[in-house]
């Protein structure tokens, strides 16, 4: 058993090494397929980043009356935080609101002057609430209307922003959907190309396979080396692809950062390195082995 396994591995390796042109062709196609899978992985990462970025911008602000005590607002914050639909609640005190306002509008001299004219802090303390999903804001708004601290609330800006919130979530879910459809189409193309390349490679060996059968080799003894060859092709193609992507990442990183602020391709690559490697190995080895196993079947009927 172990001797057979050793011989199968040896024969697989020899086939890989000796079928120069054919090996090069299958490895190249596999590099392209794995690159596509890797590209789709990055693409999903970028889509995720865009969608999260959009959704991060969505929240509902609850403005409290200026005479509310901070403790009361913090109790309200705690109560809101317990609602399962709520992802995050942030307390912005009157001073904090003023700081943010001045920071944001420091170049607007007219506004700054007007603020000085007023003399006191005109802004209200608030709670910024983020929900997990767009359709949860409605329920959240209803909750606030009946909440025990409702008498402290000055206004909730949900109704003004309702349409925009809905739109943002619609756009982001569309982006996701397009991403998934795009990935599926490209994935199917890659699989078909890889499968047919390997099928042609095995077609090239069909006479040999028939001879192996005629001299008494068992199906596993014949199939084994082809599967091993597939594993080697997958591993080599993965190594080549990961090197190519590391290089591309390194050079494209700064350019992409200007297009996609806050998204570092290289950091994404490093952070997901092991997942990516696993994805590439599974794509490369899996595709090669499954294609080989399917393609070889009909030549084993001798």
């Amino acid at each position: 058993m172990i001797t057979s396994l050793k011989r199968i591995i040896k024969n697989g390796w020899l086939n890989f090494r000796r079928q120069g042109g054919l090996t090069f062709a299958t490895v190249s196609i596999m590099v392209m397929t794995i690159s596509l899978a890797t590209f789709l992985f990055f693409f999903q990462g970028i889509v995720q980043h865009l969608v999260l970025g959009l959704q991060e911008k969505v929240d509902v602000s609850v403005y409290f009356k200026k005479d509310s005590f901070e403790e009361e607002i913090l109790i309200a914050k705690e109560e809101i935080g317990k609602i399962p639909e709520v992802k995050d609640v942030e307390y912005v005190s009157q001073e904090e609101a003023l700081n943010r306002f001045t920071e944001k509008h420091q170049d607007d001299l007219l506004l700054m002057e007007a603020l000085n004219e007023v003399g006191e802090n005109p802004l209200s303390p608030s709670l910024n609430i983020k929900a997990w999903q767009a359709n949860q804001y409605e329920a959240l708004s209803n909750f606030l209307q009946t909440a025990s601290f409702n008498n402290l609330i000055e206004k909730v800006d949900y109704h003004q922003n309702k349409a925009i919130i809905g739109k943002i979530f619609e756009v982001s879910s569309n982006i996701r959907l397009i991403g998934i459809i795009f990935s599926l189409i490209l994935g199917v193309i890659a699989i078909v190309v890889a499968f047919n390349t390997i099928r042609l490679a095995i077609y090239n060996s069909k006479n040999e396979i028939a001879t192996m059968r005629l001299v008494g080799a068992s199906n596993w003894f014949i199939r084994g080396p082809f599967l091993i060859q597939g594993v080697i092709v997958g591993i080599v193609a993965t190594i080549v692809t990961i090197l190519l992507f590391a290089l591309a990442n390194f050079f494209l990183n700064s350019r992409l950062e200007t297009i996609l602020p806050g998204f570092s391709l290289f950091n994404f690559f490093l952070a997901n390195f092991w997942t990516l490697l696993l994805l590439q190995l599974v794509t490369g080895i899996g595709l090669s082995m499954i294609s080989s196993a399917i393609a070889i079947r009909k030549y084993l009927k001798v």
Partner: peptide, 19 residues
């Protein structure tokens, strides 16, 4: 395969493994 191992074959076209 077991049956064929009892037979040795010299084929007209040799059928050697090219690699």
């Amino acid at each position: 395969p077991h049956y064929r191992r009892r037979i040795g074959s010299i084929f007209q076209d040799y059928k050697l493994f090219p690699n």
